[in-house]
């Protein structure tokens, strides 16, 4: 059954939900400033604490601790892979691009060139109840970048 379900839970998502890149908060060791954000979805209890180190305008490292559904956990994992090493401004652009896709109710397909593995979450935008799950880590990164800036 190449079903709606398989479009929602693409293999990349299922794999990342198990592997969880970046899971486990890292203490800052090198240079740069740290930003941290805690996000909670009160509807389902999904939770994430995400820590970023920004060094010379670059997202130097990203780590997180979280509990939640496959979509929220996979999203945090994919985010980690995608963002590490990017310019801060580029990271913010990607967050905005991802949010636009998620809020589109399936009308805006993700550009794989831009969003990489995160394009696998396109199907989530058709399930308004799950958009928050996919966005959780991205909002946490957005906030922690601001925190690292201040």
């Amino acid at each position: 059954m190449a079903t709606n379900l398989e479009q929602l839970y693409q293999q990349i998502i299922l794999d990342h939900a198990r592997e969880r890149h970046g899971s486990g908060l890292l203490e800052k060791t090198g240079p740069g400033s740290v930003g941290e954000s805690h996000q909670l979805n009160p509807v389902c209890g999904d939770e994430i604490t995400l820590r970023t180190v920004v060094d010379g305008g670059t997202v130097a490292s990203l780590s997180w601790d979280g509990a939640g559904c496959a979509i929220s956990m996979a999203s945090a994992s994919v985010l980690t892979d995608l963002m590490e090493g990017l310019e801060r401004d580029e990271a913010v652009r990607l967050i905005d691009a991802f949010r636009e896709v998620m809020r589109s109710r399936g009308t805006i397909p993700a550009d794989e060139e831009v969003l990489g593995d995160a394009a696998a979450f396109s199907g989530v935008s058709r399930y308004p109840a799950r958009v928050k799950c996919a966005m959780l880590a991205w909002v946490a990164l957005e906030e922690s970048l601001l925190a690292a800036n201040s």
Partner: peptide, 22 residues
């Protein structure tokens, strides 16, 4: 190994309505 929300989504696809959460 599977979060309740994912269980609920899986069942919904088959027309089964259950409650998930706390």
């Amino acid at each position: 190994g599977v979060h309740a929300h994912d269980v609920g989504q899986f069942l919904d696809e088959q027309g089964i309505a259950v409650r998930v959460g706390h």
